[in-house]
Write a protein that binds this DNA or RNA. Structure first.
Lengths: 227, 227, 227, 227
DNA sequence: AATGAATGAGTTTTCATTCAT
DNA sequence: TATGAATGAAAACTCATTCAT
């Protein structure tokens, strides 16, 4: 929708027009962002189904027609938000480098988890949308979320398989264990970050540590390790 | 809504009437169950929001008016189903008995997890409703689900605290670790049971074992336990 | 939409149910007719595009939902009306019988034209819909109207070809002449019947005569026939 | 809207300004024509109701605001187009001169019909607008079209009356016969010109001949004239 | 008790027109 | 003059719930 700005160094009339076009384009993009920002908050607070287009209008202060100028409807703007969060959360996820000389795997994991939690804290509303709303909003959105998780699970599974092969990790059912890992992160995010009052001092490093500790060493005391 | 059957010891005419009332009452209850059963399937397949009352009617074969004779509406029947699943899943959950001479804690945990998974497999549709629909159906439903999870988390937290105090478990952030545990179970249920094709041979014992193993001993090889 | 009435002569419960069903079915059909009747008037007076569903509701005195219970929308009810008129006007149209001993062709034509005009007068609103609204209402409606006229033109063309072959009629360009005939009838219907004040004494026999006379013998005096 | 060019006889500065004004005015008129031309095509192809202002803009390549600078709106530009066609088609229509020494009436008629058909072919889009769209576009447009036809019918009626009085034409119901004539022409235009593929070799002289022949001498063989 | 026709509030979406730049 | 973003009135359609039979 938002057209790419056309930068120009020419003079006279053309420059004028280009200047106008450029400015208009910037305004367009800005307006779009403004609507997205407001919508993000509304969707996160009220949920997809309870949110009416009217709520989005109220939150942005624009007219009905204006909204439809920028988005094709409620689903479309929600999908745009979902895109946003999917991109942001996919960014920090990557395979662990186990080559000799690389950063130790545990540190890599730590950094990765920490980055993910950081991205979530940086935009709680988007995280709400991904975790709580998107899976039940629309078939299409749900499918995208499912694909996102499927990708992540594939990476986890691959990492587990490597770890086992290299002797770092114990043998386990990869699919089930991957689910355990994903579930742990999702629930911690949900209950320890999203559900936490905004003001409360979130210690992401501590959360990261707890997640890793739980996943890697389990709950038992070393001494009582062998049951 | 469903009136309690009125038992009667009187005779003759009155007894006859009582018999009728009794029969009617039984029919009432049966009909109610029939509607609930059909609704369960529909809600699980289409989701709360996408399910229209007409879908419930189609699935049951009753008339609109009849439906409202048994339930106060779409929300009410969904709430009734939610009640159902909450009761069923709460049943197997209880504190671990750590008194000397009791069944070993790990076995108790194993039995408990196994029971929960068993209850879920026994009624996938209800599990769908709890896991995927109820949290986004209606504020009231979401609140009840939240309360359910809060109860479970409280029990887990308490168990963790006991385990730590008794020296069975390592020290950890109780709230975060409880979330890890709950998340693991939820995700395993979702991906390894609900998402599994019905025909696929589910091995609940194996799933139980994987969950316990993951939670108690983590992923690392004992040898590489200390990083 | 309207289900066929199920007549029943059985007794007792079944009869009761059948009676109810029958009655309900009749009411349904009656209601549908009532809505169609009102809509016919509204569409004829205001035109398809200027008619809002609300106008139809006002005219019938039913609620919005009720309307959509009987028809899928504005287009659907208009299409139903169009069906109606197409059936009624197609009825009197048939090929001319030129076998020896048959009613004289001119009399057959006279009867046919007279029947058509009669059907139109019997339901001016429907004729309005066919002549003035349907061709511009919706692509689909327009197509049906066009097909209707195409059928008629095909019959006329065939009749002209026969007439020429038999020596009754002079040679002419069939397609163009068929258009002349159709156009004459349409315009006469439009201006001499539809545009006429309802009260005005319409003499359909006279109109029929004028139409035939014009088409068959043209305007020139016999004497000046050869220019 | 379009301001008349202001001719100027003054010199020097004022003349310069006048030159500018003149040029601006010419541009204005040209632009207006350009918009009308594009709109004509769009209205003819999509119809009045299905045409959105955006379609007109797309077809012309101007901005929304610019459009409203030249026309008061969708109705206004359509009305302007209608004006255009009404003027063009009224031009060739005039009374038949029956004074001795004048061109023979049949030749006059022939010329007139031929001129009308020529004007239509010269601008099929405008003819579409008059014949198919204007009568259903807007009450005001419909009224103008109706007035146009009323004028024509009045001329035809008067001509018929004269012809009868002079003994050229047979006695007939003037209003009905006038409708026959008008309807014949309209339908022939519609089906033999507008509906014809553009490429198809239209023989307007032949169509004219057919129309006259049909109207003046009818369909019957002279021999079988008296039924 | 059972039925299903009727209801109408609620929501989305379109598009002709305006107006600040 | 030209632009195109903004507007908001209209209009269609859905569906949970009621109620007369």
């Amino acid at each position: 929708m938002a057209r790419a700005a056309v930068p120009s160094k020419s003079r006279g009339r053309v420059a004028l027009v280009d200047g106008r076009v450029l400015r208009a384009s910037r305004l367009r993009v800005a307006r779009r962002e403004q609507i997205l920002l407001a919508a993000r908050r509304v969707f996160a607070r009220r949920g997809f189904h309870a949110t009416r287009v009217a709520d989005l209008l109220d939150a942005t202060g624009i007219a009905r027609g204006t909204f439809y100028l920028y988005f094709d409807g409620k689903r479309a703007i929600f999908a745009a938000l979902l895109d946003d969060v999917l991109v942001r959360l996919r960014a920090p996820i990557h395979a662990v480098d186990v080559r000799p000389g690389a950063v130790p795997p545990r540190v890599q994991l730590q950094n990765m988890v920490r980055s993910i939690l950081g991205a979530i804290v940086a935009d709680r509303d988007l995280a709400f949308i991904l975790l709580r709303e998107a899976p039940h909003a629309e078939p299409e959105c749900a499918a995208r979320v499912e694909q996102f998780y499927a990708d992540i699970l594939a990476m986890i599974t691959s990492a587990l398989a490597h770890g086992c092969a290299l002797g770092f990790l114990r043998a386990c059912d990869l699919a089930t264990t991957a689910a355990c890992l994903l579930g742990s992160v999702k629930e911690v995010v949900d209950r320890r970050i999203l559900a936490a009052p905004v003001a409360s001092g979130l210690d992401l490093d501590a959360l990261t540590e707890q997640l890793l500790e739980f996943s890697l060493t389990g709950l038992l005391q070393s001494a009582s390790l062998r049951r």
